[in-house]
């Protein structure tokens, strides 16, 4: 079943078009930086971008930081929102269910396919970032510099980059869970994706509002950029751990709601 869903997702031209578009922005930024030599000052602009001119090895992280606030969540919301509602709109959902695929199994397979999409997308962005960083900028073979100013060996940098990739993936699971939940509520994939995006926009907006500070720790986007903390020396685990826990709660609750709704719902599409 999961194989079927993966085949469906990755044999679809749209999936690869999304990933390609997602990579276009970091590449454009890299080219502009290389041509103008004008890096943002440290502390301004997306994280890590100020450092890439001197160390291309940091560009995968800069690339992730560029797509993380908007592009990546949009892509994830679209794919997750399409998961069930897309099948409903195309009419294929009823044939999957009378096949019978089993409602719980279908939902789990859809979730795993979305997770696979998130992972592949994040890895491709990081890989393209690595290639771009290595070709356009000078990579320092000795390793990199931490955000705290101390130097990191190449192994340390690679290890922490992998951790960061994992953390970004988990952050996106919250978006995926929102998308999947809305996807079981409606027969319109567009509505489901927009619903998930509305949650993110609301969350980002409240995050900037002082009056909303009591609820700030519970906003789904609150700890997204905490992956930067993985590059402090020593690693500042507090926000990373909180971010993982928060995403875990969101994913758990939303999937339970999606399951409860989908398994008891009349499929009339």
């Amino acid at each position: 079943m999961i194989g079927v869903e993966l085949r469906k997702l990755f044999r679809r031209p749209r999936t690869w078009a999304t990933i390609a578009v997602l990579n276009a922005l970091p590449v454009l930024v890299a080219v502009l930086l290389q041509l103008t030599d004008l890096a943002p000052r440290p502390g301004e602009g997306p994280p890590f971008l100020s450092a890439v001119l001197t160390n291309g090895a940091l560009f995968p992280l800069a690339a992730l930081a560029i797509v993380l606030p908007l592009f990546l969540p949009i892509a994830v919301a679209v794919v997750a929102g399409d998961a069930v509602a897309g099948e409903a709109q195309a009419g294929t959902l009823r044939y999957l269910l009378v096949r019978p695929a089993g409602r719980t199994r279908l939902l789990v397979a859809k979730l795993l396919a979305v997770v696979a999409f998130v992972l592949v997308t994040v890895l491709v962005v990081a890989a393209v970032g690595y290639v771009v960083g290595a070709t356009l900028f000078e990579a320092q073979p000795t390793g990199g510099t931490s955000v705290s100013g101390t130097s990191l060996s190449q192994e340390e940098l690679a290890g922490r980059s992998l951790l960061a990739i994992g953390y970004v993936t988990v952050s996106m699971l919250g978006v995926a869970a929102f998308g999947l939940f809305f996807s079981t509520l409606t027969d319109s994939p567009l509505a489901a994706a927009l619903g998930a995006l509305a949650v993110l926009v609301t969350s980002s907006l409240l995050f900037t509002l002082d009056a909303a500070s009591p609820i700030a720790p519970y906003l789904p986007t609150r700890y997204w950029l905490a992956f930067v903390d993985l590059f402090r020396d020593p690693v500042l685990w507090r926000d990373v751990v909180r971010g993982l826990a928060l995403q875990g709660v969101y994913v758990g609750v939303l999937l339970a709601a999606a399951w409860a709704n989908f398994t008891t719902k009349d499929v009339t599409s």
Binding site: K8, P13, T92, R94
Partner: peptide, 12 residues
């Protein structure tokens, strides 16, 4: 079963 008309993935 054939319920309310066929449905397929158009790109396949």
């Amino acid at each position: 079963a054939l319920v309310e008309g066929p449905a397929h993935h158009g790109h396949l």
